[in-house]
Structures are given as structure tokens and as C-alpha cells.
Simulated scan of single mutants.
Amino acid sequence: MIVAVVANTAWNLLNFRKSLIGALLAENHRVVLLAPDGPECEQLSASGAEFIRLRHLRRKGVNPLRDLALLYELRTVYAREKIDVALHFTIKPVIYGSFAARMTGVRNISTLTGLGYTFLSGGWANGLVRSMYRIALRHAAAVLFHNHDDRQLFLDGGLVTEAQSQVVAGSGLQLDDYPLSPYEEAIPNRFLFVARLLTDKGIREYVAAAEAAREVNPELSFHILGPLDPENPAGIKAEELERWVAEGIIAYDGVSADVWPHLARASVVVLPSYREGCPRVLLEGGAVGRPLLTTDVPGCRAVVTAGENGCLVPACNADALARAMLEMSALPKEELKAMGLRGRKIVEEQFDDQVVNRVYLSKVNIT
């Protein structure tokens, strides 16, 4: 069959869908990748898939004329390339790709990797997005979610049906890329936050907790790895990050295409997010064998079980986060190591990319 895989960036396709693309190609499907242009295009094309640049897809912002142009562009590509099945990822591809699939008779398999800022922020925009999801997904062959909470929210709102929806274990992780690292190689008392620097990733709570925890135990160190996202309304300012570094609260490790060495040096991996789909950094940290500290919210609690592979704290609570940091730093190294090993086993059994790929292949191969 001819299968389209659609996302809001080429980076997303390369980093989150590469294994799935390979699995589709291995079954002799023709795979057409659709996303805006990016430096990852050459590598994606080298995989054996075909890359088609979407000129009208913008990850952020609402522009009705541009979004209508995106719908027309997707409809044109689906018809011209004779697409049989379209796999839609991220918000705009899910909504406008679903409309285009309906218009061209393409089987629509959409994945809600997370609910996004607009969906969760309330107000008129929230109502508009919910209405668009309801209409767009009505005729989808399958709607996949990265956690049970998100699926239930859509079921309660009448946006999807029981029959068409199910939960898949995130995007999956290629475990060969994240070998287990001996806990003895971790730097003691080193906490690591890995994410885009957004308010709703809990970056401010992390910094506030770091400051409070270091007043109690100056031996603790706190690192941040991840990009600024100035186009995002939840993004922090560069000046704020610079001030945290200048005040000695945190160390900023910049951005890296290879997070494994950073995870291996950490003694605890931290993500105090407000809500997630299936947070990749927790899977990565677990695969490397590091205990995890995160919030008791949808997505995060699907990966972490308190006392088993890490610790859960309430969201938006820097005091609770600081207490958990101090408690984890006081645990014997053997206990932290055991948490990391249990985390590795959880990722192997539940979040391996082959587990996820089998779900998608079963949907694509229905005739």
C-alpha cells in the first residue's frame, strides 16, 4: 500500500517515527513522508521513504487562510500520490489531515501524542479545538492515544468512540540507542531536567526547587538540557535562563542531539511537567537505568510508579519537588541503582519500539 506519515516537523518524523517508517518499508509499503522542510529531510529520504515538503504547515499560530491552504495542500497530495492510508501525528496534521483524508477516501489513523497548550488552556480557543477534533475524527478508522487519561477525556467529551480509540505505548524507544549505563558511572547528587524550556514542563518549579534544596544540601547540582522555544506562549525568556545560570542555581548544558551521555552522568532524571502524552525523556532515562522524579499527572504516571522506578510529586509544587530531591539524594546508592534497573525493565517490556510498531502495522494492514 501507499502510506503517508504526516507530522508538524521533519525533526518529529526523524526522532519519533524513524522506527515506524522502517517497519512500514520492511513490509514493502511505499512510504510518503509529509512535513515542512528541515535539515532532517536528507536523512529521511535516505531511509527509502519519499519526502514531500508541506509549504503551508506552521507548527504554531492560528491563521484560517493558511490552515485552509494546508487542507487543500494535503488533499492534493493524497489524491496525486494515491495514498491508501494516512498516519497523522501532532495537532494540525491530525485535524487537517483527517479532513483531507475524508475528502479523498483515504483511511485515517490519527495519533494524539499530547493535547497541547490550546486544548488545555480553556476559553474560546479550547472550545474551537474540541469542535474541530470532534468533526475531524468522526470518520477516523483509528484514533490512538499515548495514555489512558487523554483517551478518557476524549471519550467523556464525545470526541471519539470506544470502538475507534485505544492507547498505544507512546512513540516507542529503540533500545539499542539507549544502552543501560552502570549506576556507578553517574555523578552523585546530579539532577537533570531534559525538555523544551516551557512553563508547562515545570521548568520554573525545577529551578525554585533546586534553589531550595541547595540551601539544605549545597552538594546537590542541578542541570538543564533542552532548547528555548520563543514561539511558544509557554516558553521562558533567554534572559530568565541566563539569570538562573548567573545566580548559580542551575547549570545549562545547552542542546544535544545525543542525550545518552547526559542521562548517564545524572543520578536522577527530573520532569516536573503539568501534563504529558508519553514523555520520551522518562523512557530514555529509564532505559539508561536512572531513577526518575516526575509529577503525578497524565502521561508521567503511566511511566513512573512511586517507589518502583522513581518518585511522584504533585504538579506545580516546588516545595514538594524540593523535598523529593532531598529525599532521593539521601537514599543509599544501591536503592537508587535498583530503581534504575527496574525502570530499564519497564521500558523493555512496555515501551520498546517493536511493541508500538506492531500496533500501527496491525492498523495499516487491515484490508
Rank of each mutant, 00 (worst) to 15 (best):
L225W: 05
V259Q: 00
A238Y: 07
A208S: 14
A212I: 10
A212H: 14
P279S: 02
V255P: 10
A210D: 04
V270H: 04
E242F: 10
N217D: 15
S267W: 00
D200C: 11
A209Q: 12
E247K: 14
L282S: 01
G277N: 04
A208I: 10
P298D: 01
R265V: 08
S273D: 06
S221Q: 15
T294Y: 01
P272W: 08
D296R: 08
W244S: 07
P261K: 00
R214W: 11
I249P: 03
N232C: 12
E239K: 13
E219T: 14
N232E: 10
A246K: 14
L282F: 07
P279M: 01
E239H: 11
A251T: 15
E240P: 08
H262I: 03
G289P: 03
P230L: 11
H223G: 05
Y274I: 01
V269S: 00
R204E: 12
G202S: 09
I203T: 07
G299N: 06
R280P: 03
W260I: 14
L198R: 06
L198T: 00
D253Y: 05
G202V: 07
E239Y: 02
A251K: 13
E276D: 12
P233E: 10
E239R: 14
I224K: 00
D229Y: 13
V255A: 12
I249M: 10
G202I: 08
R196L: 02
N232D: 15
P291D: 04
E219P: 11
R214F: 08
A210K: 05
A234G: 15
E240H: 10
R214A: 15
I203A: 04
V207N: 00
T295G: 07
V297F: 08
E219Q: 14
E219V: 13
P279C: 04
A234N: 15
E219C: 12
L228K: 09
R196F: 03
V288D: 00
G248L: 09
S273C: 03
G289Y: 02
R265G: 06
E215R: 15
K201H: 09
L292G: 02
A246E: 14
C300E: 02
L198Y: 05
R265F: 06
Y252C: 08
A234V: 09
Y252I: 10
S267D: 10
A195M: 08
H223W: 13
P291Q: 01
P261Q: 06
R280F: 04
L198S: 04
G299Q: 06
S221L: 06
E215Q: 15
W244M: 10
E219G: 13
L225Q: 04
I224Y: 00
L192G: 01
I203N: 04
I224Q: 02
A302S: 15
E219R: 14
L197S: 10
S273V: 02
E231N: 14
R275Q: 14
D229G: 11
V259W: 01
I236R: 05
P227T: 08
G277T: 03
E276K: 13
G285K: 00
A257C: 11
G235M: 08
E247P: 11
P291W: 07
R275N: 04
L197D: 05
R196W: 01
G277W: 04
L198C: 00
I224E: 02
E219M: 12
R196S: 03
D229A: 14
D296S: 09
R290E: 00
